[in-house]
Design a protein around this nucleic acid. Structure first.
Lengths: 291, 291
DNA sequence: GAAATTTTGAAACATATGTTGCGGTTGCAT
DNA sequence: ATGCAACCGCAACATATGTTTCAAAATTTC
């Protein structure tokens, strides 16, 4: 029983002083506290990819006599947690218009976001996402457009897609007009457009332009009849409910991520190899911090 | 793996049919379910005042192959209070070699994403978010940095924040080095940094620079000891679990949105007015399509 | 560049754990 | 009483677990 109410803090404050392998172990423990409570030391060591002795050494390094003592702390933490959970739920339910106004808002946001995600992965939407993948795989070039609050979702897709395909192009309008970037778009290409109310003129224009060139459009939008989705080949209508009056783009982002994941999964070994190559290249450019 | 979602019911329904000693064991288990999850079988037997063999016999009596299986159920029960989806996600991930491979993947992604969001709005994180808002409100200038896959989350915050505060600055490194954009950062400012493994050098440098200038840092990251969060004043550790090997930034984005929403809510009427003005200005610029 | 120091992983060790087999006991019907 | 079946606990077993030891490797220091 140390001076620290929670050994996590000790682990964090001493982290810099630890040897590399111990850091690896400490990091895993910090990231997966429940495993400490439930699994054996050897199993934990295996999961953290360190030999068991490292764990023992880590114990002495942070001033804990034995693994049992360490585990007991985490078991108690696990036992106390649900209590605080339930307690808080009751608390916030009781006094609604109160000092807990902030907590209440955030919890409410959480529930709304979960609903949004859930709706985005309904069987219907899942089927459409799979269709969308088929279209993307057969496209000569993949354009992605999304402005304003929708830009993150568009960017996310473009960022992931670029790692294993080089025919993607993020149309962000940064370099002047959209027209330049969409030049040469044809029926063999595809435009992925993201946008919700209020519809930004640039996005709509891009969609209309693509339609005029008979280019199929995959729309991620808030309505089947939004100016973005109206004439789209595939309409992925995601909920954007939100407590504030900004719409939430969480579900849109999640869908974009899912599309990338699906494309990779369908791409098989080849896609994986390309990603590996891309990562290697980034490492060569010294983009990342040491392994 | 029985037909019962919870082995407790099986234990109760079969209770009358059990031999006296087994009843004693069953009774103790029913009264102390957490002990099953946390302690060893022999320890439990000792606590229940029965020999270990009685526990083993009880297992076969209720149709459970092994003690491990029994314990796993109770461990999940203990974990499933905060996060009920992780297990199901793991299950759906198992049967991949299937005709519905794509559907399964997407469903699994959905569950994982919901889990990530849920974890991001735990009571602990909620409290930290509120703290973060306090820091932001008192800051002279608010810098936001996020590179690569983390850029969308950073952008999202900057985009929303700009609508009601003009002291935000998105440090995207587009215009050359980070140093230029962070020049003049002081202890009265705040840096919001978003990033997960693999940590991009630029983000880490920005964080270190801010720390050297004694500027408080709000870190949205994947670990308490990530290079971004290690010395941060407020650490918002969000889960980034994902079915593909790209990390998911859904939770990070959601947290950023929540921060904006919370700031607006706390800003009251004044913030609303500013937003109205900003929207008006955008409308004047003809950014939006008319209603 | 060599020596000193630290760090690391494999193996060894004693103990703890889950399970099984066997003899003894109990309760019950004949 | 006696045979019979179910029940029970002890002890043995194989394996798993936490810890220590030791030599090789890596890092630092001079």
């Amino acid at each position: 029983m140390g001076l620290y109410s929670d050994l996590r803090e000790k682990l964090i404050s001493d982290y810099a002083k630890l040897s590399p392998q111990m850091q690896k172990a400490a990091r895993y423990i910090l990231d997966h506290p429940n495993e400490v409570a439930l699994r054996s030391m050897r199993a934990l060591a295996g999961a953290a990819d360190v030999p068991p002795s490292t764990i023992t050494r880590l114990m002495t390094a942070i001033g804990v006599e034995t693994w049992q003592e360490f585990r007991d702390h985490y078991q108690n933490r696990l036992l106390d947690q649900p209590a605080s959970y339930a307690q808080r739920a009751r608390e916030t339910q009781k006094n609604e218009q109160d000092v807990n106004r902030d907590e209440h808002l955030l919890e409410s946001i959480s529930l709304t976001e979960i609903d949004n995600i859930r709706a985005a992965f309904s069987p219907e939407l899942i089927a459409k996402m799979i269709d969308a993948c088929g279209v993307i795989e057969n496209a000569r070039q993949v354009f992605i457009v999304g402005c304003g609050a929708a830009y993150p979702a568009a960017y996310q897709f473009a960022y992931g897609y670029r790692l294993f395909c080089d025919n993607g192009k993020l149309v962000d309008g940064h370099s002047g007009a959209f027209g330049d970037e969409l030049r040469g778009i044809t029926r063999r290409d595809v435009l992925i457009a993201v946008g919700a109310k209020p519809y930004i003129r640039g996005t709509v224009r891009a969609v209309n332009f693509a339609r005029d060139q008979h280019c199929p459009v995959i729309a991620i939008s808030d309505s089947d009849v939004s100016p973005i989705a109206l004439d789209a080949m595939i309409k992925l209508v995601v909920r954007d409910h939100s407590q504030s009056f900004f719409q939430s783009f969480t579900a849109a982002l999640s869908v974009m991520q899912a599309l990338v994941a699906l494309l990779v999964a369908r791409g098989g070994q080849k896609a994986l190899q390309r990603i590996a190559a891309a990562e290697e290249q980034l490492a060569a450019f010294d983009t990342y911090l040491e392994a």
